[in-house]
């Protein structure tokens, strides 16, 4: 008997089952198929203006900074302003996301680099898959256009978020995920990000910028 078999045998011995019981299998298959939502807090619910207001308040509680702009064309100027006001270098790295690529970067003096980070970048820009009003959380997915290294290595992480991608809760993000990847499917990495990196490991003093970004700036578009 190999270890896998030994562990399954021990589990089944303890549970007093043999594993082939049809009602148990049916119950498990049903739960996996239906994925019942459980208790979903009211805090994130409401129409888009309500969700936007909750998202902003919660993201600020988590020490993220926010800006709202009317259209995609305004994003490069807002990002340039953010970097200038925080005395950051005028270079940003980003993936091949089409919504970012379509922006008028040449209207700013920013230098644009593409592809994953090797750890030497100070600034990165990502496009969000969705956001969660309940906790002020961004949802970012990995893929050909979105290197995950950009979410963690640079000092300043700027995330562009379409206003109508602000959903109420985690469950709504999962529904959107199933739309994009199929039921039971998932991207290699799904990052839920709530504020900039931090640690309280030294005397329980909260400090920002532990291993990940020191600043998280969210640009809401639309």
């Amino acid at each position: 008997m190999n270890s896998r078999e030994a562990i399954f045998a021990s589990i089944r011995r303890s549970l007093a089952v043999h594993g082939d019981e049809a009602p148990r299998r049916f119950e498990v298959e049903t739960r996996l198929k239906e994925a019942p939502p459980g208790v979903v807090p009211k805090r994130g619910q409401g129409d888009l203006p309500a969700r936007l207001a909750t998202f902003k308040a919660e993201a600020e509680r988590a020490q993220a900074s926010l800006a709202e702009i009317a259209d995609w064309a305004g994003a490069p100027a807002e990002i340039a302003r953010f970097l200038r006001e925080n005395n950051c270098p005028a270079t940003v790295r980003m993936g091949a996301d089409p919504s970012l690529a379509a922006m008028p970067w040449s209207e700013t003096t920013l230098e644009i680099l593409h592809g994953p980070s090797d750890g030497r970048d100070v600034n990165a820009v990502s496009a969000a898959f969705a956001a969660i009003a309940e906790t002020g959380t961004l949802a970012l997915v990995s893929g050909a256009d979105n290197p995950t290294t950009l979410n963690f290595l640079p000092d300043n992480h700027i995330v562009v978020l379409p206003r109508d991608a602000i959903l109420g809760d985690y469950e709504s993000v999962f529904a959107k995920l199933r739309g994009a990847y199929g039921k039971g499917g998932a991207p290699r990495t799904l990052n839920f990000i709530t504020g900039p990196s931090r640690s309280a490991d030294i005397e329980q003093t909260l400090l920002l910028g532990a291993h990940g970004p020191r600043r998280l700036h969210i640009v809401i578009v639309g």
Binding site: E58, R61, A62, E134, T135, G136, T137, A186, P187, R188, T189, L190, N191, F192, I193, T194, G195, P196, S197, R198, G212
Partner: peptide, 10 residues
């Protein structure tokens, strides 16, 4: 309310 990074890897 939420940890800063909740990461799902597949």
């Amino acid at each position: 309310d939420a940890s800063v990074y909740t990461t799902l890897s597949t």
